[in-house]
Write a protein that binds this DNA or RNA. Structure first.
Length: 558
RNA sequence: UGUCCGAUGGUGUAACUGGCAACACAACUGAUUCUGGAUCAGUAGAGUCUAGGUUCGACCCCUAGUCGGACAACCA
């Protein structure tokens, strides 16, 4: 069994196995290192599942570390949401919660080591000057006039940077590497900048903050990380990552890069998600149309489905765009097994059973989940006046229409077979207002006659017993793929789907009253829904998680 | 006119490290069903970016191209 699994290792596992075999490392210790500057999205979920999954698979450990080296972008709100989301996904960092800001003192000492070695210096150039003298990818940069300051001068200046003597932007600490390096990141990168800003954890203790490159590898090293897994854009940073470790003389983790997740019709940039929230294109980070973990959660996704999705998409180094239909498959697969069925009518038309006694009410027995016997049954009231879905009736049926039509028969789920006799239309609009039918008393579910073949089965709700509810029909937020391509300034407005959120008032069978926020169910033939957090007694609110298979694309094709 | 990385069906990921390209999603067909769902059975779809080379044999190794991505924040 173990050997069979060994056949389909991903490239990261191959590297790890190789390292373990060669004794480069003797254990596996990974970390998930988000910057607390926004909410986590499905792309982070891939990384979380990867890192924590590897930790578990190799009987190792995984840390949660906040990469909080830029106080102007980071907030406690984000820290809290990230911890909540990681936990919700089902992962546990146990007692290994860290912050890069925990290492500010240590990092400062590392910088001093470099200064003493002559491989770091204080530079007085402005950001613009540094940028100009860095050159371009194809042209080498120019050396800073401050590059050859003495160790003593650098030590003195760096200490004074720390004490707050200099204004923001007036000086930086840079590594002294190679201004002609073909790798831009090796052209005397900035290690520390002056930022008189309040940090969400260290407050005003520091006014100089390390850059990502100077903090990340060292943080990995301090924590004893063996495999530091990050996304592809950090590939060109790896020489620098290794350079700092070597130059300071630290234990060396191995950085491995993988391709980040792209989902069709979905924006996965934190910056743009933030913009969507700030400019009210959506109603917050947990808007169910958002690809954020909290959005998916509110939408009705389960942690299991997301973990399974991450597992299914795999991990590699080539750019990829995963089709939404795979994510949808994963959630349907999970919800199909776990969610109870319930009857709801979103777009009602009244059906009157002319031969059904005026005041009679029957309790029809319904199976809660045909996929799971243990979920039991429930009673649903049935009476003379019902609602069915308007689309489930067609006066003149087309050849492939299996549902109710004039003169035709259809089965009401868990009820009777009915036959349509006539329809009444609104004289003004011409719209059908009532469908008059007769029911066949011998065809009640369970009775011998009920086995009679009829072409279709409809879901229904008793008009006088139904509960009304607000149902939010979430669709994809974007109608075009790769909205990232749009020009600056209107990144995604052009692609926004005006129908991404439709709200209808639906009629639902009375058992809906018992549901609590967060509960997931399948509206018979309509899709998977969950009870929204906005639900309060007397006002039910449902979110559509996902439609049943294919109906989006089918309706698109029409 | 640079450095680094990548290239396998419509989409993703595999291929025992050189042995006749597999799995999942999507698509299609049929069976079944009191959900046009689910389930079950089946079909189609790539010869692995190109051109050379090594080899009995190449998705895998070598050479040269082509195409795509990343890199020029005091962001991460």
């Amino acid at each position: 069994m173990e050997e069979e699994k060994a056949k389909s290792l991903n490239f990261i596992e191959e590297i790890i196995n190789e390292d373990l075999k060669n004794g480069v490392y003797h254990k596996v210790h990974t970390r998930f290192p988000p910057e607390p500057n926004g909410y986590l999205h499905i792309g982070h979920a891939k990384s979380i599942c990867l890192n924590f999954g590897l930790g578990k698979k190799y009987n190792g450990q995984t840390n949660l570390r906040f990469d909080d080296t830029n106080p102007v972008k980071e907030e406690t709100e984000y820290v809290d949401s990230i911890m909540e989301d990681v936990r919700w996904l089902g992962f546990d960092w146990e007692d290994r919660l860290y912050y890069a800001s925990d290492y500010f003192g240590q990092l400062y000492d590392y910088a001093v080591i470099l200064i003493k070695k002559g491989t770091a210096y204080v530079c007085d150039m402005s950001a613009e000057e540094i940028s100009e003298t860095r050159g371009t990818p194809t042209r080498p940069g120019k050396e800073s006039p401050f590059r050859n300051r003495t160790v003593e001068a650098n030590l003195n200046l760096f200490a004074r940077m720390k004490t707050g003597e200099f204004p923001d932007g007036s000086k930086v600490l840079r590594a002294r590497i190679d201004m002609a390096s073909p790798n831009m990141h090796m052209r005397d990168p900035v290690l520390y900048r002056i930022l008189h800003a309040n940090h969400h954890r260290t407050g005003d203790e520091w006014c100089i903050y390390p850059m990502y490159d100077f903090a990340h590898g060292q943080s990995d090293s301090i924590e004893g990380i063996t495999h530091s897994i990050c996304t592809l854009e950090f590939e060109v940073h790896r020489p620098l990552y290794d350079w700092f470790i070597r130059e300071i003389g630290l234990y060396a983790p191995r950085q491995i890069e993988f391709a980040r997740l792209n989902l069709s019709y979905t924006i996965m940039s934190k910056r743009k998600l933030l913009q969507m929230v700030r400019e009210n294109f959506v109603n917050g980070w947990d808007d169910p149309r958002m690809p954020t973990i909290c959005g998916l959660r509110r939408r009705g996704y389960t942690p299991e489905s997301i973990r399974n999705f991450a597992e299914t998409i795999g991990v590699a180094k080539r750019d990829n765009v995963i089709d939404m239909s795979l994510l949808e498959f994963c959630i349907r697969e999970d919800l199909n097994k776990r969610s109870n069925r319930i009857m709801a009518v979103l777009n009602p038309v009244k059906v009157i059973l002319d031969n059904y006694p005026e005041d009679q009410v029957e309790e029809m027995e319904c199976i809660n989940n045909p996929e799971d016997e243990t979920k039991g049954k429930r009673k649903v009231p049935f009476s003379r006046e019902l609602y069915i879905e308007r689309e489930d009736f067609m006066e003149i049926p087309s050849k492939k229409f299996f549902r109710l039509s004039e003169g035709g028969e259809v089965r009401l789920k868990a009820g009777y077979i009915i036959k349509c006799n006539r329809v009444i239309k609104d004289p003004g609009t011409g719209e059908i207002s009532e469908i008059h039918c007769t029911y066949d008393p011998l065809t009640k579910t369970g009775m011998p006659e009920s086995n009679r073949k009829v072409k279709g089965t409809l879901h229904w709700v008793s008009a006088k017993h139904a509960v009304t509810a607000e149902v939010r029909l979430y669709d994809r937020l974007f109608i075009k793929e790769n909205p990232d391509d749009t020009e600056e300034g209107k990144e995604f407005t052009a692609y926004l789907n005006p129908d991404s959120l439709k709200t209808v008032t639906a009629f639902i069978e009375p058992s809906a009253k018992e549901l609590a926020p967060g509960e997931k169910l399948q509206f018979e033939r309509l899709g998977y829904f969950c009870v929204d957090k906005d639900t309060i007694p007397g006002k039910m609110v449902f979110n559509r998680t996902v439609t049943l298979k294919d109906s989006w694309t089918k309706s698109e094709k029409k």
